[in-house]
């Protein structure tokens, strides 16, 4: 009699539903991760054999059917480093203002909406902006400068958000402690708040670096050249870039079959760079969060 009391008749049915739901959802979610696995698998299987010291340090040869991707790597580094260097001070300034000085109000709301909106602009539109503004209006032409500036605008919202998050994570008590000792607001910010937020800000920087490294559409008509047999020698020069290199090799390469290996190699290289940067940022973020005593 007591057993009947607790195990009601519908209980079994409801339990079965619970188990089915978990099984179905678990299965559907694992599908998503299988995709990641599949992409990695195919790229590694086809591209790993292309990897060699020469592949990374040599110029392409014979109409890009042989040789390496050295100039593309260098070009990507110039572009992304340039973009981050330009965007960082603006992003930091914006984040400091939003967290430390603004104190709320409609102006803050407007800037927040601006940041969110900018983050939702498709990357090809940044390309159009770069073309119209930097290449044509400012007369920078198709150059590293134009490309880096375009990418800088693209990563600006990501950097602002992550810097803001890092600053917000610094406990109020730190600021109050410093202010109570008579420190000025700016003094408090740069001696107390910024050092505590530094790991978070760097994480955000690394993430934006990886984002900028993978973007193709914004640099396609602002910075890159199909092929260059020398390294760029000034910011006003064109350059090659890894993502664009992958794109043109895959879609316009004159001898598709022969270069298959090289193409997979280039794609694998880009993927590895981006994933390593991301993984580094994620691991670092986890560690610095754990280490925090507050």
């Amino acid at each position: 009699m007591n057993n009947m009391l607790i195990e009601d008749r519908k209980g079994k049915h409801r339990k079965a539903k619970q188990v089915t739901a978990v099984a179905i959802l678990g299965f559907l979610s694992s599908v998503s991760f299988l995709v990641l696995g599949a992409i990695l698998y195919f790229l590694i299987r086809n591209g790993a054999s292309a990897f060699s010291w020469e592949f990374l340090t040599e110029f392409p040869r014979r109409m890009m059917t042989e040789g390496g991707i050295f100039p593309a790597i260098i070009g990507s580094i110039y572009l992304t480093a340039g973009a981050v260097l330009v965007a960082l001070p603006f992003a930091l300034g914006a984040a400091i203002w939003l967290t430390e000085y603004s104190g709320g109000g409609w102006w803050v709301r407007a800037i927040r909406i601006g940041v969110n909106t900018l983050a939702g602009v498709p990357s090809i539109v940044f390309g159009l902006l770069g073309l119209a503004l930097f290449v044509i209006t400012f007369g920078f032409g198709v150059s590293i400068l134009s490309g880096a500036l375009t990418l800088a605008i693209l990563i600006l919202p990501i950097m602002i958000r992550s810097a803001e998050e890092a600053l917000n994570a610094v406990p109020r008590s730190f600021r109050e402690g410093a202010l109570a000792l008579g420190a000025s607001r700016w003094h408090t910010v740069h001696t107390v708040v910024l050092p505590s937020a530094l790991p978070g800000i760097l994480t955000g920087t690394v993430l934006s670096l990886s984002r900028a490294m993978g973007e193709t559409a914004p640099i396609m008509f602002t910075a890159v050249a199909y092929s260059m047999l020398r390294l760029p020698n000034s910011p006003m020069d064109k350059c090659m870039a890894l993502p664009y290199h992958i794109f043109v090799m895959a879609t316009e390469s004159p001898s598709y079959g022969e270069t298959r290996n090289l193409q997979f190699g280039a794609a694998l290289m880009l993927l590895a760079l981006v994933l390593v940067l991301n993984l580094f940022a994620i691991v670092w973020r986890t560690i610095s969060r754990r280490r925090k005593a507050w």
């Binding site: 007591n2 057993n3 009391l5 607790i6 195990e7 009601d8 209980g11 409801r14 339990k15």
Partner: peptide, 18 residues
């Protein structure tokens, strides 16, 4: 025990009905 049956071994959802 709840009316003689061990609560800690029963099905939690069923218990919470009662």
């Amino acid at each position: 025990s709840f009316l003689g049956q061990d609560l800690l071994k029963a099905d939690p959802a069923a218990i919470r009905h009662h």
